[in-house]
Every structure is written in structure tokens, then in C-alpha cells.
């Protein structure tokens, strides 16, 4: 009798051991093959470039290669709508952007809802920035606001797409300052910048990264950060000028629904580790990206916060 009871005990103990260490083992084993990092935009864009910055660091920490895949379409909506149909074992991750993933479902039927996207980390943002050509008569943001208030609609400001981050930023800007500008949508940041450089439009509602790229050819009038951006030390923040606008496009990583929680946490930790690397930070800030840390635990609050911040503007733009 003692033998079988001992035997039973042994079986139970080993079963318990397996049950508790099983997930741990899976986590320790993860990843077991190369990771696919899907970017919903064309190569060369902000999402792609930052992912490529992350790539070598991630590969070193994870011990597996990270393959970057580009899946553009409909301003990112095509990929985000497909996210949850991908394998949910953690070996496929996708780049996400806020406000895009909040705006798009609010404005029309894009095949996914904001809640469908399971984000694990937001690791940087590109702050909104108002840019004008170097030879523009506007020396300060106040000049621009004055002009736009006196001549409503006469000032043309370009941006990438309709119902996108740039568009949203221009609506918010108008709400906060009372200036009325005509937003001219372009098929991407690059065409908008071309138009600014060529003097076709008065300015652009763009990102700090574009200002850094264009160098002396543009003048940034303000940036939407808490403190001045290191790459653009002479440019005041909106806050300094009395306008309460901090934000931009927050980029992060998401996984398909159903990915085990331990794996999500591991991915979140890994990205956090990459973010903490000084070399990585240097690459990002030099190009104008603001490194930010919103790990897995803080994501729901972050999304709610952003949703509230955009609410009035979304209503103004005709969405729900």
C-alpha cells in the first residue's frame, strides 16, 4: 500500500512540477525560430527605420534572427486587420501606431477595432512638428498663427493622408489656437515635404524626424514634446508657447490575439531592454525620435488616455 501511495505522490508531484514549470519552460525556450516583424508600411518610412534600429539589439537578446517584413496598404489598416489571423505563438509581431489604430476604426470600417490590437509595448514616438520652408516669412509660430487667424483658410498645410496622425494634429492645432488652415493631404510624408521645400504649400504638419532629415531647408516652428528635442535644440515646444499639445505618432509592437501572456511579457521586457541600451537611444534621438517606455502593464491606461485626448478632434472630423 505504501508503495502505491508513494507512487501516486510522485506522479502528482511531477505533474504539479510540469504544470508550473511548463509555461516557464516555454518562456525559456522562446524563441525557437526566427521572429517575423511585420511592418504595415513601406520600407524607408519611420516604422521601418525604427524597427531596423531595434533589429540587431533584439537579435542579440533573443538569440534568433528577426526578419522584417513589409506589408503596406491602406495606411496600415490592411496589416492591422490581418494581425489576429497570424500565428499567435509569439514568433510573429507587428508594428502598431497610435493614433492610427484609434483613428482608423473610428472614422470608417477598416476591418478591425482598436480593442482588437494587443499591444505589448510602445517604444517611441515621433513628435508632431510644424515645419515651414527656410525662406518662409514666418519666423515664429506666432507669426503663423496670426496669419492664419487673419486669413482663415488661406494658409495651406500639408500632411500625410486623410484621417491620419498629421490630419488629426492639424485639427487639434486649429482647436487649440483658433487658427484656421487648409489641410492638404498627400500620399505620404515625403511628398508633403517635397511640396513644402518647393514652396507649393505654406507649411507642413509633420514630425521631428522629417525636420531632421530636411536639415537647413526647413524651419521647425514648434515641436510637441515636454522638453526641447535634442536633435532640434533651437525649436521651442508647444508648451513653451502656451499651447497644450504634446504628442505625435506613438509606435509600438503588437502580437496576434491569443498569444500566451508569458510570451507577451517576455516580448515587452525584451523591447524595454532594447530601449534602455544607450547605443540604441543614441541612434534614435539623433534622428529625431523620442524614446518612450510604455510597457505591457501600462498599455490599457495609455490607450484610454490617448482616446480621450483625441475625442473632440475625432468628433470634429466626423468620426465616432
Amino acid at each position: 500500500m505504501t508503495i502505491t501511495r508513494r507512487g501516486l505522490g510522485a506522479v502528482l508531484t511531477s505533474a504539479m512540477l510540469v504544470a508550473t514549470t511548463g509555461p516557464l519552460m516555454a518562456q525559456a525556450d522562446f524563441p525557437t525560430r526566427p521572429i517575423t516583424y511585420v511592418i504595415p508600411f513601406n520600407p524607408g518610412g519611420e516604422s521601418d527605420v525604427t524597427a531596423r534600429f531595434q533589429q540587431p539589439f533584439m537579435e542579440e537578446i533573443l538569440g534568433q534572427s528577426v526578419v522584417i517584413q513589409s506589408r503596406p496598404g491602406a495606411g496600415g489598416a490592411t496589416a492591422w486587420a490581418q494581425l489576429n489571423s497570424l500565428e499567435a505563438d509569439g514568433h510573429t509581431i507587428m508594428n502598431t501606431i497610435v493614433p492610427h489604430t484609434i483613428l482608423q476604426p473610428a472614422m470608417k470600417d477598416v476591418g478591425y477595432q482598436t480593442a482588437d490590437i494587443e499591444n505589448v509595448y510602445f517604444f517611441h514616438y515621433t513628435p508632431d512638428a510644424i515645419l515651414v520652408p527656410a525662406d518662409s516669412p514666418f519666423q515664429t509660430l506666432q507669426d503663423l498663427i496670426d496669419f492664419a487667424t487673419e486669413n482663415p483658410g488661406a494658409l495651406t498645410m500639408g500632411g500625410s493622408g486623410t484621417n491620419t496622425a498629421n490630419h488629426l494634429a492639424s485639427v487639434i492645432f486649429g482647436d487649440l489656437t483658433g487658427a484656421t488652415v487648409t489641410y492638404v493631404p498627400f500620399s505620404g510624408s515625403a511628398p508633403a515635404m517635397t511640396a513644402v521645400l518647393g514652396g507649393q504649400i505654406g507649411g507642413a504638419m509633420s514630425y521631428t524626424t522629417q525636420a531632421v532629415k530636411a536639415g537647413d531647408q526647413v524651419r521647425a516652428l514648434a515641436v510637441a514634446t515636454e522638453e526641447r528635442v535634442p536633435a532640434l535644440p533651437d525649436v521651442p515646444t508647444f508648451l513653451e508657447l502656451g499651447i497644450d499639445h504634446v504628442g505625435g505618432a506613438y509606435r509600438g509592437v503588437a502580437v496576434p490575439a491569443g498569444t500566451p501572456d508569458e510570451i507577451k511579457q517576455r516580448l515587452s521586457d525584451v523591447i524595454g531592454e532594447v530601449n534602455a541600451d544607450p547605443e540604441f537611444q543614441r541612434q534614435m534621438t539623433e534622428a529625431g525620435y523620442q524614446v518612450v517606455d510604455i510597457p505591457l502593464g501600462e498599455i490599457p491606461a495609455f490607450i484610454e488616455n490617448r482616446r480621450a485626448a483625441y475625442a473632440t478632434a475625432i468628433e470634429r472630423m466626423g468620426g465616432s
Partner: peptide, 27 residues
């Protein structure tokens, strides 16, 4: 010269340059 891709493959090459740390433009 401007950092604006002239054709679609140029956009990709531009991205590759950025990752290598090369800043394009008149400079």
C-alpha cells in the same frame, strides 16, 4: 540631394542609408 525618393526603389535605398547613419541632403 533632397532626401526625397525619386522612384520607389529609391525610397528603400533611402531607408537603408538612414539605418547606416548616412544623412542625405545638400550636406
Amino acid at each position: 540631394v533632397l532626401g526625397i525618393p525619386g522612384t520607389p526603389p529609391d525610397a528603400i535605398i533611402l531607408g537603408a542609408l538612414m539605418v547606416q547613419g548616412i544623412r542625405v541632403g545638400p550636406q
